[in-house]
Design a protein around this nucleic acid. Structure first.
Lengths: 208, 208
DNA sequence: TTTAACTTGTGAATTCGTTCACAAGCCGGA
DNA sequence: TCCGGCTTGTGAACGAATTCACAAGTTAAA
């Protein structure tokens, strides 16, 4: 597939899709790059450039067909199918994610949560079973999850990641505040709240 | 203060500080840009460039003094003081954040959580009082929180943000999967899990 | 049909961030 | 004191991402 697409572009596509769904639900038929841009806090040229990497979806003079563009974006983002997700670490953050509606809505199906704490094993977290981390390898072999979400303490994160990688899972969403090392064919996205907070602290401290 | 620093630079400084604290706790005295780079998944030139925006902290031929550089970074990032934080939305994510140790460790003190749900008001969330959102304005006037964390549903986020902005708070950490509009003097950082997940979906779908 | 008002798609120009490459400075040993 | 080995700090080169600017296509109305 053509050339490498920037991370920032993919994130914007994701944002565009959200607006399109909003427009779709309100029954609107077409949308211009300018409208899309305003909602996404970017420029119309940016929107058109982003889309142009994947083809020409619009009509000059008119704009984009809302349902068609939404469909194309879902296709590009790989949202046409269900992705199976496991959560590793059944703490507070794991629990919050388990009930997060955004997962289901977008076709991310949570299979199970894993933990080492015996008191948690066997319980249900928002309807999702908490299993013994010891059976991770066996379960992955059977259920073939696509994505692992890591919500374990920072000092365990790398060790757990290595274990997850060994099972063959190629996509990881990490909530531990740690820089993780993984092979090139495994995609790791890290959500680091500490870093965001420090970014706010920096902004508050250094305002001109 | 000199010229605008890139967001990516600030995030890296934040990462460097974490490694330095690790080194500090192990009693190491000096560190080179190369060592810092390896831990942070970047290059030594990048590390030196990042630091150079703020001054010359190292000694040629030797490297950086760990405690000194850590101190300088804390200063730059504004971590020398306590920041007062309020959480708006006492749902699962709010609860998870309330107990998140990363906050306290870095000097972020959580004053209270706010919610409109009467059943939650008056309860404690991990020791933090849940108050009526109706008294937000009064409380802010009295307690002067610096940062508001938004964990409300997406369709309420903009409305709540406008209200928070009106109280004079200048820094917001948003967990709603929505692009928010705010005045230029207010810094908004959004943590969008849906977007990260879609990034993973994209990566899984489009691997060459 | 012609015209006016729009809007896309895309090379070119620009801006922004990263990497290179090396002079300048520091340290320890001879 | 001199030398060899190291490491910083920083202009210059490079590369990537964004913005500009406009030809080309579409629509509706006269």
């Amino acid at each position: 597939m053509s050339k490498r697409i920037a991370d920032s572009t993919v994130r914007r596509l994701s944002a565009y899709l959200r607006f399109l769904e909003d427009f779709e639900s309100r029954g609107l038929e077409t949308i211009s790059s300018e409208e899309l841009a305003q909602r996404g806090g970017t420029t119309s040229a940016q929107v058109r450039k982003d889309l142009s990497f994947f083809g020409s979806f619009g009509k000059r003079g008119l704009g984009y067909s809302v349902p068609e563009l939404a469909g194309r974006l879902r296709e590009i983002l790989g949202l046409g199918r269900e992705w199976k997700v496991i959560i590793i670490g059944a703490g507070k953050i794991g629990a919050a994610l388990a009930q997060y509606r955004g997962f289901r809505q977008r076709g991310f199906q949570i299979l199970a949560a894993y933990d080492a704490n015996e008191e948690k094993i066997g319980l249900k977290l928002e309807g999702i079973p908490v299993r013994d981390i010891a059976q991770l390898e066996r379960d992955v072999k059977q259920d073939h999850p696509d994505i692992a979400v890591l919500t374990v303490p920072g000092d365990e994160a790398q060790r757990v990641l290595d274990r997850v990688v060994k099972t063959g899972i190629k996509a990881i969403l990490n909530f531990a505040p740690t820089q993780l090392q993984a092979p090139a064919d495994v995609t790791v996205k890290t959500v680091n709240m500490a870093m965001e907070l420090e970014g706010l602290s920096y902004a508050l401290t250094n305002r001109e």
